[in-house]
Design a protein around this nucleic acid. Structure first.
Lengths: 120, 120
DNA sequence: TTTATATATGAGCATATGTTCATATGTAAA
DNA sequence: TTTACATATGAACATATGCTCATATATAAA
């Protein structure tokens, strides 16, 4: 490999070719990474975190969530749509009221790992 | 409670006062939520995800990471700084070369939960 | 049918985020 | 000390994100 080629890759020499090759094979494809990042994004915002934490306690209607979080109904509704698209919450209608609940079993695990981290 | 007061809270009537009260007490404080959201943000980006996944395999220098991910050295370095600030990676110097490695035991758990979710 | 209530949604705006480019810093070799 | 290389960093830019405001939709009650 000429010096020029190395520079084209990373502006410096590759130190450990074996590790680089292994890691290249090991890394998930771009589509998987996009989905994974999308999933974690759900937890990367205070409002969504609170919504998920609240729904971990019990199913709630939009109005309950609005009151519990002390935010506008519009803000809650927008975030619920995002969580719904991510398949993290589901809903059921009861007349005018719409009840949201969790739609993923791994949310508890994610919370646990998060709390463990910040409590270190 | 007058109608006016209700409107000030959420523009609609509170449906389940008991649940709202319980959830209010149960929700983590704002500071905790900020820290939690910060932690999850580390995983909410493709590049950082790949870096963490790579370091899960073995410690790597910046140049290795740059080559393995096929990105610019600058981009990698900026993201490493973020991960360092979040206490997710640590580093050791060896002459000119700086080796990064994971600094958190829960990263594996987070990955597992993420993969479990997208594989459902 | 009219009115009220619960929720959803589009547009606009301010802020945050991720990358690139240029360059600085630090360390080792010549 | 000079040169080369590994890494870090600031500025700029484009895009993404989250909220608010106004308004739409849907359902139930009057």
């Amino acid at each position: 490999m000429s010096k020029k080629e190395k520079i084209e890759i990373c502006h410096c020499n590759i130190i450990h070719n074996d590790i680089v090759e292994e890691v290249r094979k090991l890394l998930p494809g771009n589509d998987v990474c996009i989905n994974l990042a999308e999933f974690y994004k759900a937890f990367a915002d205070q409002t969504r975190l609170k919504i998920l934490k609240a729904l971990l306690h019990s199913e709630m209607c939009v109005c309950d969530l609005t009151a519990a979080l002390g935010m506008t109904q519009s803000a809650i509704s927008h975030q619920l749509r995002i969580l719904k698209n991510m398949k993290l919450v589901k809903y059921r209608k009861a007349g005018k009221v719409i009840y949201y609940s969790l739609d993923d079993n791994h949310i508890k695990d994610i919370f646990k790992a998060g709390f463990d981290h910040i409590n270190e």
